[in-house]
Design a protein around this nucleic acid. Structure first.
Lengths: 343, 343
DNA sequence: CTGAAAGCGCTTACAG
DNA sequence: CTGAAAGCGCTTACAG
C-alpha cells in the first residue's frame, strides 16, 4: 500500500503538500503540483479513505434507506415492494456516481412505535441519508434526526428535512382530466393506503377533477386499498360487482401495483382493457410496460426525483444549517394502451 | 462524540480494556466487563468505524456490483436491466444485514477492452465484492482480481473466484421434460445472448431434453436473442411467421424479459396463452407474476443465491487463501398459467 | 487479566 | 508557497 509519505518522499516534498495537491487546494506552485501528480501517477497512489474519514470526521458515503411495512414480508409480497424501489435505487446509484460519495443501501422495515433505526445511521456509516418511500410515520424521521443531520425524504413530504415529492393533487387531477378528455364520465378511483401522506392529497385531486368536469362525486366509485397487487385484484372484483348502471368506464389506480392486480382479475373474467374498461396506473413503474395491454400511467419521473434528491443531499452536506428545502415535481402521463377514447 | 477514552476514564480502566470488551475478547474479567458495558450503555458509545478501519486496514463494507451492457443504456432498456437485478440487490441487502458489514452498491457498465473498474473497488471502499449478472468477459474479473482479493461472481461461473450459479443445463432440460410431460412435442427454444457463460449450457439442456424424449432437433425452432424485451417481441413475430406445420405448441424463453416481450406480440395478434401456445419463462423475475396470464417460469431461487453469495464472501473474508469455492444451485419450475396440458 | 505506548494514514492549523 | 508537528480514535503487540 503506497501512502502519502511514500509520495512525499519520492517527490521530495512534505506530506502536507501532497495532501494539498490531492485535495485540489490552489495554493501549490504549478511546478510542484505537476511533480507530485507525476509521482502519484507512477506509484498509483490512492488516498486511504478511512484515514481521511477519521481526521475529517466525515464518512464518504451516503445512505439510501428503503422503507417497507412489516406486512410486505409477512404476506410474502416482497415483489410488490421490490418493484417499487428499484428505479429509485438505480437512479440514485447513477446520480451519486459522479459525486465522490459511495452509496450504502439498507432495506429497513419500519414498525410503528419501535425505536429501532437503520444500522447505517446508528453506526454513523454515512454523512447523509435519503429515505425512499412513504411507509413510515413522522415519528420515524424525528427519531432519525437525532442521529443524523443530513436527511432527505424522497416521495414523502417532511417538515423537518429536505424532501422531494410529486405534485400529488395535480397528478390525479390530471388523470381525471385525461379521462374526461377521452370522453369518460364514470370514473372510479382506487386510493392507496390512507396512512400515507400522499393519499388524501391525491383524493383531493380526484374530487377537484370531477368538480371541474361537472361530474357528481359518487362514493361507490371510490375504493380504498393497501399497496399490494392482491388488493388491486380484490378491488377489480368489487368494481365488477357494482350494479350495471354504476359500472365505470374508467378507473384510476393509485399505484401501478394495484392496476396490475386488477388486470389479473379482468383478464381472468374476460373483461377486456381498454375495450370494456379503461384503466390508468400511477407511478409508471417498469412493470407497466410489461403488462398486457401496456399500462397508460402517471409518470413520477423517478429518474428526475433521484437526481433532485442527490443535489438536495449534496447541498445540505455543504451547508448543514440552511433552511429546509422542498422540491415538488410535476407528473406527466405516459400513454400506452389501456385507455380507450370514447369520443 | 463519545470516544473510547471517555468510556475508559469513566469506567476507570484503560482504552485497551474497553477495546477488548467491545471486540468480545474473552480475556476480560467478568466484573470489569460488566462495568465497562454499563458505561458504554450509559454514554451511548459507538465505536468510530473509520478509526477501526484505519488501524485494522479493513473497510467494513462489502460491495455489490451490477453489470450491464452499454447497450442497455443506449437503447433505453434500463427497465429490462433494473427488473433483472432488483431481487438480487434486495436479497443480498437482507442477507448482509446480520453480518456487521455495510452494503455498498455500484451499477457498472462494462465495456469490452476498457480498463475501467468499479470505483468502490478502485478506491478500496470494500473488503470484498460480489459481481452480479453475466454481462462481462473473463478479462474483467482478471482486472478486478488485481485490485481486490475477495470476489464472488453471482450468476456466472468463474475460474478465479468463488461463484454461485444455477445448474443451467439441468434447468432447461427440466423445462423440456415439463413440456413433454404436458404432451408437447413441438418445443421451440429462445436462447439468450450467446456471449454469456450460461447460453451454450442451456442450449445443451434443450438438446438433451429433446433427445431424451425422442424428438428430433429442428434448427428452425431455435432462436437466438439478446436480453431485451423488444427482442422477445421480434422472436414471437418470427415464430408466427413459421409455416403452419412448424408452429410450436410450446416455447421456452431463456429469460422472463424475452417472454414478456413475446407476450406483447402474441397479445397484439390475438394469439392466446396458453390456449394457442404455451410458454415458459426463465429466472422467475417479479414481472412474471404480473404478466397476464401469469407466467410459468423456471425459478432461479435468487433469494437462496443471495444468501449463498453472502456466506461465500464471508468465508472468503475470513480465509482469503482458501481454494476457490463454487456453488451450483438447482432450479425448479414455478407453475402459473402459461402452459396448457395437451394430454 | 490489564495498561502504556506506538502507530495506522491522513488533514489542519500554524509558522515561516 | 511549503513543512514540522499534533492529533483524529481506534487496535495491537508487549510487558507485567
Amino acid at each position: 500500500m503506497v501512502s502519502i509519505k511514500d509520495v512525499a518522499k519520492m517527490a521530495g516534498v512534505s506530506p502536507t503538500t501532497v495532501s494539498a495537491v490531492v485535495n485540489n487546494h490552489d495554493c501549490v506552485k504549478l511546478s510542484t503540483r505537476e511533480k507530485i501528480l507525476k509521482v502519484i501517477n507512477e506509484l498509483g497512489y490512492i488516498p486511504n479513505i478511512s484515514a481521511r474519514e477519521l481526521v475529517t470526521n466525515k464518512k464518504q458515503n451516503i445512505g439510501l434507506i428503503t422503507t417497507g411495512y412489516d406486512n410486505f414480508q409477512k404476506n410474502g409480497c416482497n415483489n410488490d415492494k421490490d418493484i417499487f424501489y428499484i428505479e429509485y435505487i438505480n437512479g440514485i446509484a447513477e446520480a451519486i456516481k459522479t459525486t465522490g460519495y459511495g452509496l450504502l443501501i439498507e432495506n429497513f422495515v419500519y414498525e410503528e412505535g419501535s425505536k429501532e433505526i437503520p444500522k447505517i445511521i446508528e453506526q454513523k456509516r454515512v454523512d447523509g441519508a435519503m429515505i425512499v418511500g412513504s411507509l413510515y410515520k413522522k415519528e420515524f424521521i424525528e427519531l432519525l434526526k437525532k442521529e443524523i443531520n443530513v436527511l432527505v425524504t424522497v416521495g414523502t413530504f417532511s417538515e423537518f428535512t429536505d424532501y422531494v415529492i410529486n405534485d400529488y393533487t395535480e397528478s390525479i387531477l390530471m388523470a381525471v382530466r385525461y379521462f374526461v378528455k377521452n370522453g369518460h364520465r364514470k370514473i372510479a378511483y382506487v386510493s392507496g393506503d390512507s396512512k400515507t401522506y400522499a393519499c388524501p392529497l391525491k383524493l383531493l385531486g380526484y374530487k377537484e377533477g370531477l368538480k371541474e368536469a361537472g361530474i357528481k362525486f359518487d362514493n361507490e366509485l371510490l375504493f380504498e386499498s393497501k399497496f399490494m397487487s392482491s388488493h388491486g385484484y380484490d378491488v377489480a372484483k368489487k368494481i365488477c360487482e357494482l350494479p350495471k348502471e354504476k359500472f365505470p368506464t374508467a378507473v384510476i389506480f393509485g399505484a401501478d401495483i394495484l392496476a396490475a392486480g386488477a388486470c389479473r382479475y379482468f383478464y381472468e373474467n374476460k373483461i377486456y382493457i381498454p375495450e370494456d374498461i379503461s384503466i390508468l396506473g400511477y407511478e409508471n413503474l417498469s412493470i407497466s410496460s410489461y403488462i398486457n395491454p401496456p399500462l397508460t400511467s402517471i409518470d413520477w419521473n423517478k429518474n428526475l426525483m433521484s437526481k433532485e434528491a442527490c443535489s438536495l443531499i449534496l447541498r445540505r452536506l455543504k451547508n448543514p444549517n440552511k433552511k429546509y428545502d422542498g422540491i415538488v415535481l410535476p407528473c406527466n402521463i405516459v400513454e400506452r394502451k389501456s385507455v380507450k377514447n370514447l369520443n
